[in-house]
Simulated scan of single mutants.
Amino acid sequence: MILTDDKQLEALAARRVAEEQEQEPPPTYASLQASSSAVPVAKAVNYVAISRQHSSVRETLVIDASLFIPLFLRPSLPPGEKAETQKNVKLESTHGHVYADITLVGNRKNTRAVMQMKSTHGGITAKIHGPPTRSAFVLHAQALNGEVRLHIPRNFHGPVVISHRHGSVRFSDDISCELMTFGEVDSTRRCFLGDFSRWSDNSGGWTGDELVVEVKHGDVKIHYDDDVLGAPVKTRPSALLNRIFGF
């Protein structure tokens, strides 16, 4: 079959396209990574409150504790709480687990992010992280019947108070190396994570990080957010510190 000039040109063009496609290298890992990084980043929020009765709470949040939110957009306040003391994050479940991945950003007004997580018949798993310039935070995690597993920033600096009745308290190896345990009285263990020589409460109290955990029936496990998880090590109170602080 004899092709016309136009058809010959089309055939040659198609052949060239096919040859170019055969010679084109496969996409590199970097290009694939760049395309996957195009996922939208969550916007910072503030004063988030979620409470559920018969299902778990699963949230990934970016929190800016200095972000202004007008009162009419904030969650309603429980009795006895004022707008000035409203939690920046409040996650609760009665018959379910609380899962939270929280990135802390911003420190424009030197404000702390105050967070509360509670589960009555379930556990709590939370990862708190952020850049070196993140705001300090206070986290109160309470579980009556369930395990509490927390992953905190490696630059956490402040007191750690853990109250537990029936269960164990375990820290990762890296946290154990940086933790001072002052003693345990009435099932409440009081510790300090970080450089204790920087402690200061001259101007209205401690303004750094704080971690308060309450568990009745369950274990407590605390890691750094970038730990390679292995077998955690249970800490023991120091006899010397016990004598110094009267425990």
Rank of each mutant, 00 (worst) to 15 (best):
I2K: 08
D5K: 15
K7Y: 10
A13P: 06
R15W: 10
R16A: 14
V17W: 07
A18I: 10
Q21H: 10
P25Y: 12
Y29N: 13
Y29M: 13
Y29G: 08
L32W: 11
L32K: 13
A34V: 08
A38G: 14
A38N: 13
V48E: 02
S55P: 03
S55L: 07
S55W: 05
V57P: 05
R58A: 12
L67E: 07
L67D: 07
L67W: 08
F68C: 01
F68Q: 05
F68T: 06
I69Q: 15
L71I: 07
F72R: 09
P75H: 15
P78C: 08
P79N: 07
P79Y: 05
K82M: 10
T85R: 10
K87G: 04
K87M: 07
V89D: 01
K90Y: 14
E92I: 11
H95N: 15
H97L: 09
V98R: 02
T103W: 00
L104P: 00
R108C: 04
R108D: 04
N110Y: 04
M115F: 12
M117T: 13
K127Y: 08
I128E: 01
H129E: 09
H129T: 06
G130I: 09
G130S: 10
P131S: 15
R134S: 02
A136S: 12
F137N: 00
V138D: 05
V138T: 13
H140T: 09
H140Y: 03
A143K: 05
N145E: 10
V148D: 08
R154P: 00
N155D: 15
I162N: 03
S163T: 09
H164C: 01
R165I: 07
H166N: 15
V169F: 04
S172N: 00
S172W: 00
D174Y: 01
I175Y: 00
C177E: 03
E178L: 01
L179E: 04
M180A: 05
E184D: 01
T188F: 06
R198P: 03
W199V: 09
S203I: 03
G204N: 09
G204A: 10
H217K: 05
G218N: 11
D227S: 05
V228F: 06
A239H: 04
N242F: 04
N242P: 01
I244Q: 11
F245K: 07
G246E: 06
G246T: 04
